[in-house]
């Protein structure tokens, strides 16, 4: 999967959890927690990403910095899928 494809798929997973957010606001470097992701759906985000990409995040990877923006998530998934 190319980086662009990873980005698109990640955007779709995030968008599903932010139904009220205009997709134009969901840019790659936008803080998704600022847009409305919170403790209520963060766990769902992690599970949905794992399912969508067929990866398992370990506890050290599940930190705020890895899930703050689409770019952060894509970087993490790219690293895991290459490994």
């Amino acid at each position: 999967m190319t980086i662009e494809e990873l980005k698109l798929k990640t955007q779709n997973v995030v968008s599903e959890l932010l139904p009220n957010v205009d997709s134009q606001k969901l840019t790659n470097d936008q803080d998704i927690f600022y847009l409305g992701l919170n403790s209520i759906n963060a766990m769902t985000l992690i599970f949905n990403l794992q399912e969508a990409f067929g990866v398992t995040f370990n506890d050290a990877e599940i930190n705020f910095d890895n899930f703050r923006t689409i770019d952060d998530i894509v970087k993490l998934i790219a690293r895991k899928t290459q490994a």
Partner: peptide, 18 residues
């Protein structure tokens, strides 16, 4: 709390689990 540049940052519990 989790601190970033000395400022406490509130974050979802899943990121504090470790």
């Amino acid at each position: 709390p989790f601190s970033q540049n000395g400022v406490p940052v509130e974050m979802p519990f899943v990121f504090r689990r470790a």
